[in-house]
Simulated assay, not measured.
Amino acid sequence: MGTGRSTGEFAEFAVSRHRALFRYAYLLVGERGLAEDLVQEALTKTYVGWHRLRDSANAEAYTRKAITSTAIGWYRRKSWHGERPRDDVPELPSRGKDDDVTARLWLWQELSQLPPRQRATLVLRYYEDLTEVETARILGCSVGTVKSQTAHALKKLRARLGPDAELTIELVVAQ
């Protein structure tokens, strides 16, 4: 690394962005302990590459990409298909209707069953509200791949959720 200033800048980045990075990791894997492990591993990789990163936007993208690629690698190595440990779904604020909360929980359960890359694409696009270009940069793929992964994921959700899928997806995305 080199200078104490660089180490201080990294520490400031890690502390200020930890919550957002953890939320992203949690949405990818659905389990708090595993999400924390993902964030720690990604921050370690970011620290090692800190001297190459020019600003916090690059550091954020680099860290999110590390979270995504590490999660996908873990899923491939563990062959996590079917049941796997996870925490309860985090509480979602109600907009005054029990139906809204039920719809969000239902969609969360369906989202957690998507393949990791499709889930990452939806989380980045709709939960993190990133553009297709920003999502592609984080995932290390083309904008076309982001579009196709998003389309495939939404198609799977619509097929599982049935005729109310559009309303349910809109409720969650609008939140």
Score class of each variant (00 low, 15 high):
residue 173 V to Q: 03
residue 3 T to D: 08
residue 128 E to G: 00
residue 50 W to D: 10
residue 163 P to D: 14
residue 58 N to F: 04
residue 93 P to C: 03
residue 140 G to S: 12
residue 71 A to T: 04
residue 40 Q to C: 08
residue 109 Q to T: 13
residue 13 F to G: 01
residue 137 R to S: 05
residue 60 E to A: 11
residue 150 T to M: 10
residue 144 G to E: 13
residue 102 T to P: 01
residue 136 A to C: 01
residue 154 L to T: 02
residue 40 Q to A: 10
residue 87 D to E: 02
residue 133 V to G: 11
residue 116 P to D: 03
residue 33 G to N: 00
residue 172 V to Y: 07
residue 35 A to D: 04
residue 170 E to G: 11
residue 127 Y to K: 09
residue 24 Y to T: 09
residue 170 E to N: 08
residue 97 K to D: 15
residue 173 V to H: 01
residue 125 R to K: 06
residue 169 I to S: 06
residue 18 H to M: 01
residue 67 I to L: 10
residue 105 L to Y: 14
residue 136 A to L: 01
residue 50 W to V: 03
residue 61 A to D: 04
residue 99 D to M: 01
residue 26 Y to N: 00
residue 84 R to G: 06
residue 131 T to R: 07
residue 61 A to R: 06
residue 18 H to Y: 11
residue 72 I to G: 02
residue 49 G to M: 08
residue 106 W to M: 14
residue 26 Y to V: 01
residue 32 R to T: 11
residue 151 A to C: 03
residue 30 G to H: 08
residue 101 V to R: 08
residue 79 S to K: 15
residue 60 E to T: 09
residue 101 V to G: 11
residue 106 W to R: 15
residue 119 R to T: 02
residue 149 Q to G: 06
residue 150 T to W: 03
residue 90 P to D: 04
residue 67 I to F: 02
residue 141 C to V: 15
residue 143 V to M: 09
residue 51 H to M: 04
residue 148 S to H: 08
residue 164 D to F: 06
residue 94 S to C: 04
residue 23 R to K: 10
residue 88 D to V: 12
residue 141 C to K: 05
residue 24 Y to C: 02
residue 49 G to R: 15
residue 30 G to L: 03
residue 107 L to H: 02
residue 41 E to M: 02
residue 24 Y to H: 13
residue 71 A to S: 14
residue 117 R to F: 00
residue 117 R to W: 08
residue 155 K to I: 01
residue 76 R to V: 11
residue 65 K to A: 15
residue 125 R to F: 00
residue 169 I to M: 12
